[in-house]
Design a protein around this nucleic acid. Structure first.
Lengths: 152, 152
DNA sequence: TTGTTTCCCATCAAGTCCCATGTTATCCCA
DNA sequence: TGGGATAACATGGGACTTGATGGGAAACAA
């Protein structure tokens, strides 16, 4: 599972170390690296191992071959995703357009989300985190978050 | 899996480099090249390895021999598809009618869609990409993509 | 011959690999 | 428990390989 949040440096070549914990998650898989795509939801990147993409593919292949929704998902996800292989030191090179989409220059924040992860510009992530926490607090009933005795 | 989007040049002879990642997908197959046909759905080309065509064949053979839809698909896909062999540098030569159908002149956009890919004129693809992203964003629950905590 | 297609070679850029170094975390032993 | 040794991790730069592309020669068809 992808867990915890890590900030790593992005060097002049666009290389960034993938946190060792994240590398351990995909180790032994069919592809020694991660698969990353720009979120169509905001200025950040989403990623996971090849297993994640294969799960998406299985979902999509249950749709009819020429279903409009299927083709839209295929273009939005597979068309945007890129496999990023680890180098000998566990780094990947971020394509320029990915770095631009997420506003990454000197630093990148890796956020583990269980089956997948996100990559943010550290400044944007701080804003987003505050917003997400406030949203969750204000909507916890609507979201049916598990309530704890005492309401804490 | 065919992944990511790449823009490659089309030279005066109608030659275009197939992205190295795509070549790697079909490498080792029975035919050292790709199979391409004009989409009956829009101004672009569809393609894949020989394995893809064999899967389509299996699907179609489940239909009744004289089903109108079957005959239409057979003509639209198998009748229109051509195998394009790689040259020593991994390029293929686009037949003129294919280039016309997709409006390809100086550049061609290869879009990976998992089990197959599409070839677009870069300008036309930009338009459709925005549509696909908006559609995917609005309908991602239909795909049961893992929801992000907070829904933000 | 004339135009078209296929094959081969040269070049340039970009991506990948390799080695070296500093820093942090972990382990072991006194 | 404290300190030192060791291993793991993150980072920087240089060398090299691969990929994309352009042009030309040879083979083929009209």
């Amino acid at each position: 599972m992808f867990l915890s949040t890590t900030i790593n440096g992005v060097d002049a070549k666009g290389r960034v170390s993938v946190p060792a914990d994240f590398r351990a998650v995909v180790r032994g898989g069919p592809f020694d690296g991660i698969i990353v795509w720009p979120s169509f939801d905001g200025p950040y990147l989403e990623g996971g191992g090849q297993a994640l993409l294969e799960r998406y593919q299985a979902l999509i292949e249950e749709m009819d071959p020429y279903d409009d929704a299927r083709i839209a998902f295929e273009r939005a996800i597979f068309g945007a995703a890129r496999p990023l292989a680890f180098d000998a030191n566990g780094r990947v090179t971020l394509p320029k357009d990915f770095a631009e989409h997420a506003g990454l220059d000197a630093k990148a924040t890796f956020v583990g989300l269980g089956s997948r992860f996100e990559i943010w510009s550290p400044e944007r992530f701080e804003d987003h985190k505050a917003n997400a926490q406030a949203f969750a607090r204000d909507n916890k009933r609507a979201l049916k978050l598990p309530a704890r005795p005492g309401g804490v």
